[in-house]
Simulated assay, not measured.
Amino acid sequence: MVRKKFTPVFEENESTIRDRVLSRVDDSWRKEPGDFVYDTVATVPEEIKQLQVNQDTILKNGHAQYAEEEYLDLLLAEVGLKRNAATTNKRTLSVTADAGVRIEAGHTASAIITDSSTGDPIEYTVDVLTEFATNSTLNVNITALEPGTMANLATGTEITFVPPIAGIRSIVDLGTYEKGTDKETDESAYARYEFKVNNPDTGGNKNDYRTWVLGVAGVGDCRVIPRWNGNNTVKVVIVDAEKKPASPSLVEAVQTYLDPGSTGLGEGKAPCGAQVTVVSATALEVNISANVTYTAGYDPAAVKKAFEAMSAEYITSLAFTDTPLVYNKEGALLISTPGVSNYSDLLINGATADISPAVDQVCVLGTVTI
């Protein structure tokens, strides 16, 4: 969501402050630049302006709609909320090694890709001790040293152990099984704050479930379905921070938080008697094809990439909104893509109609053929 922009209340220009101070000096004194009075007064406005800036900062951070960083965290705490912290990437390596090789828990695994902010290789640590009783291939789970999305590398990334371990023949990255997420943004945290304030706790209505679920790190959105399997049953459908189907570990984390084991015994956040079932949304793949006339001088591959980015952003924005994916909207995105001068035969999943996902589905971009 787009938050309101704070308009300074107290801050003034230094010249305005200086002129006002000089106006308070009796006119019997010379007050031109270079005069004693003027030069004495000239040092004051800068300090006064800084005090005014500080006043505006205090005023801004005293209201949740404008507050930032740690000041917003304090206001979140006042209504029982907490900013979601960054989480770490978890992935699996397929390691082939000789009999007798030991990979100790905590051993460092380093990717060839570097962190864009530090220039250092992205590093992971081994989760548990892995021992090779025979010449064999075993899976080794590793966790990123630093939280955030930077470690969400593509499957197949070259990763090595540091220092090297004698007897290891090959290491194949099988990819992520739990994505890392960045620290929750001010915009996202305030959206939850606003929802909580406008929908105060009532002991377990739909809005309460939404507030609880969105407070779990890694959850991007949710849908609450009451009485889905009879009285006293609640289904919660979730997506991850990228508005895509959630991982099994994220589903389990939310399930444990709300109703461990789906027993309805009130051992989690959900009230006694409410048997909660948490599931991931299922993906409804959106495949797009069209014949495109390119503008001279544009690279077709670059045009396709730009359209895919715009289409993916649009599709992601529809998650759990009850808004259909509009066929004509995709056409508008395509014709507005730089390098596209015209198009024909646009098809979405082989048809020319809008797409309405089911209550437990989210659209995800599939193949794009233009």
Rank of each mutant, 00 (worst) to 15 (best):
A253P: 01
A77S: 15
A111W: 03
N61T: 06
A86N: 06
D56H: 03
S170Y: 00
T157R: 05
R192Y: 07
A241D: 15
L75R: 15
D201F: 10
L72K: 04
G167I: 05
V326I: 15
I225K: 03
F320R: 12
T321M: 01
A253H: 02
I355P: 03
S336H: 06
K82M: 13
Y343A: 02
D98G: 00
D201T: 14
T256V: 10
E178T: 08
E267Y: 07
A42Y: 01
E11K: 13
E78G: 01
A191I: 03
C222G: 08
A301L: 09
N135Y: 09
K235P: 04
P357C: 08
N198P: 02
N89H: 01
G204K: 10
V126I: 03
G350C: 04
E313D: 14
V21H: 11
T323D: 13
I348Y: 00
A111L: 08
G203R: 10
T369S: 15
N232C: 06
V278A: 07
S15M: 11
V254P: 05
K179N: 14
I355S: 10
P121T: 12
A241N: 14
Q255I: 05
L93D: 03
G167P: 09
E158V: 15
E158A: 14
G167K: 04
A253W: 01
S289N: 12
